[in-house]
């Protein structure tokens, strides 16, 4: 794979206005997460008891919470968690799901059956449910959250690879390669894998948005990453009792989640339209 087609895809994608908006939002959020200490001098865990529950103000641009902690700083450091979780969880789903799908396509027969039944079983568990179960067993932490959401991503990746593989296997060029004496193993890596990359990329982008939502939900019910580490979800949890006193505290992190998820969805949808319009029904 040369870089040429990927640049072409990028150009086409960026011409879709929603995708351009999505990429800009993603870039802004990634940069603010990385350069958080340079953007704000405030410490996300430092309490300022002279300025509790502030609205927009000079000391705290986006206000402060009931312990006087700076909302902007917490938001920026929370972005790190959101990005780490979405990358980690989707990465885990790809790393385990893609090889499983390939093995399924390659081996066919009862191995394919076993793998697919396990995937069928995994689909039954929404990521939040896995996370609740794991949190009960292991306690809430960054690895628990990533593993829980990652596990939920595995079956979707495996299924996509498998269905792509099954279609591609029927194509003439694969038959030609087989007739030419190419081993099954090489066929998988030379033909099936490269041809399956596009839907995996699309699904990954959309799954990242879903991972952000799940992480936030876990944080909100208190079984995600534990305070004092700020996450958008646990910020919302701590803001909730203050809803009638300082609604800004609840509004800001929610908007951040909404924007990031929107960005992932926009880019994912655009990539799907550019890479393969036929995928519309396949990917959820």
């Amino acid at each position: 794979m040369t870089s040429r087609p990927s640049i072409e895809v990028l150009k086409k994608t960026m011409r879709i206005p929603q995708a351009a908006f999505g990429v800009v939002v993603m870039v802004i959020i990634v940069f603010s997460a990385i350069f958080a200490p340079w953007i704000t001098s405030a410490d996300p865990e430092e309490m300022d008891f002279d300025n509790l529950l502030q609205g927009f103000s000079e000391e705290h641009i986006l206000g402060s919470d009931q312990m006087g902690r700076d909302t902007l700083a917490r938001l920026l450091y929370g972005a790190r968690v959101a990005l780490m979780v979405s990358l980690g969880a989707v990465g885990l789903g790809v790393i385990i799901g893609v090889p499983l799908g390939l093995v399924s396509v390659y081996c066919r027969g009862y191995i394919d059956d076993i793998i697919m039944r396990v995937m069928d079983a995994l689909v039954v568990f929404p990521s939040l449910l896995i996370a609740v179960g794991l949190a009960a067993a292991m306690g809430g932490s960054l690895p628990t959250v990533i593993i829980a959401i990652g596990i939920a991503n595995i079956p979707w990746m495996a299924r996509i690879i498998r269905s792509q593989g099954l279609t591609i296997r029927e194509q003439d060029f694969v038959a030609a390669a087989e007739a030419g004496g190419m081993s099954h193993f090489r066929i998988i890596f030379k033909h099936i894998l490269p041809n399956s990359i596009a839907p995996v990329i699309v699904q990954s982008t959309l799954s990242m948005g879903y991972a952000v939502l799940t992480e936030a939900a876990l944080g909100f019910i208190g079984v995600g990453i534990q305070p004092p580490t700020p996450t958008w979800g646990n910020m919302l949890l701590q803001a909730y009792p203050m809803l009638d006193q300082q609604p800004l505290l609840s509004i800001v992190p929610g908007l951040a989640i909404f924007l990031l998820v929107l960005a992932f969805n926009f880019v994912g949808d655009a990539l799907r339209d550019v890479l393969d319009p036929r995928l519309k029904g396949v990917i959820h």
Binding site: L236, G254, I257, F258, V261, L262, N265
Partner: peptide, 14 residues
Amino acid sequence: IGGVAIPNFWFGIM
């Protein structure tokens, strides 16, 4: 589009 991206519990809070 908005309905898919909004956290449902945050929608509830709002």
